[in-house]
Amino acid sequence: MAEKIKVIITGALGKMGVEAVKAVHEDNELSLVGVVDVKGKGENFSEIVNNKEINLNLENDLDRIIAKTKPDVMVDFTNPQAVFNNVKTALSNKITCVVGTTGLNEVELNQLEKLAIEQEVGVAVIPNFAIGAVLMMKFAKDAAKYFSDVEVIELHHDQKMDAPSGTAIKTAQMITENREQRPPRNTKEFEKVAGARGGDVNQVRIHSVRLPGFIAHQEVIFGGVGQSLTIRHDSYDRVGFMPGVIMAIKHMIETKGLVYGLENIM
């Protein structure tokens, strides 16, 4: 029997972190060896998730947990302020990284890619782990060849820290790759309220909604002469992201350098 992949999870107290802890623990090919969160005070994680089998103390020091457990993979679900340093620390210790935290900019991604190649390990930055969301982005890219006019509405819970979402930005980028260069939009358009027309990513308008009750949802609306096309994906429970997380862990352990987007793993 092959040796199990040793995994630590940072941001383990977050909603995605808790689900990732449970998913990794339950997978027969993975071994959960450490849970890290800045709010950790050494309490036993089994009490937090009400599962006596997850018998690990919650650490708040990433360097210490790396030294103690010597993991193969780090999964990061922290926040935009912490993610870059966390991944840099892990890669420097030759640890493969799977990153679900959004907020990394292009300069930071380039630095992490260079470091991963130097250390001969992999780093996956995944804007959305939902397989259905990846298919939604793929379908939107395909449709962009035939419908050049498009806007994106993304809806998330009111605790989400960044806007627009990483998925919405990635969708806009994929649409741009598959449609011809467009002339400037209607210059006579006037916003009576600043921001009413949303943000602009490569001439794709993105509108961000933040309300309690939502998890993660996105619709891509294409407009054409006499018709429209709407492609929508809804995540109703964070457990739906976990098959993508597990898939990324197992793929990246055999991969070197940067992979951006789950579609490059599927």
Rank of each mutant, 00 (worst) to 15 (best):
I131N: 03
K88L: 03
K141L: 06
D142Q: 11
K94V: 04
K160D: 11
E219Q: 14
H251E: 08
N51M: 13
A90F: 03
L262Y: 12
A143H: 12
V35Q: 13
S92R: 02
T187W: 07
A196L: 08
I246G: 10
M242S: 11
I8P: 06
N128S: 15
K160G: 13
V152G: 05
G195I: 03
L32F: 09
I131H: 06
K250V: 03
G223P: 06
Q173D: 13
E177I: 02
K52T: 01
V121F: 01
M247Y: 10
N79K: 03
E43V: 12
V35D: 05
K141V: 00
V125E: 15
T96S: 14
E263I: 08
A67G: 13
E19G: 08
E254H: 13
K6Q: 07
S165P: 07
V99H: 10
V239M: 14
V220H: 05
S92L: 08
S165N: 07
E108V: 06
V134R: 08
V98D: 01
A90P: 00
P164W: 10
G199C: 03
V209N: 02
I65V: 14
V134S: 14
D158A: 13
T255Y: 10
V204Y: 03
M247V: 00
I249N: 10
L109E: 06
P184K: 07
Y260C: 05
D237P: 03
G198H: 01
G17A: 11
G195V: 06
A144S: 15
T10P: 09
Q81H: 14
G132S: 11
N57Q: 11
G226R: 12
G240E: 00
L56G: 03
H207T: 10
E254P: 10
A12D: 10
V123K: 11
K22L: 12
L155T: 03
V7P: 00
S31Q: 11
K256V: 12
G42N: 15
N105Y: 02
M136R: 01
V83Y: 07
K6M: 07
F214H: 08
K256H: 04
K114W: 05
S92H: 02
F129L: 13
T176L: 11
H233A: 01
D72A: 09
L91D: 00
E26I: 04
A172M: 07
A144I: 02
T255S: 04
A216L: 12
N264D: 07
E120C: 08
L13H: 10
T176F: 13
F45L: 13
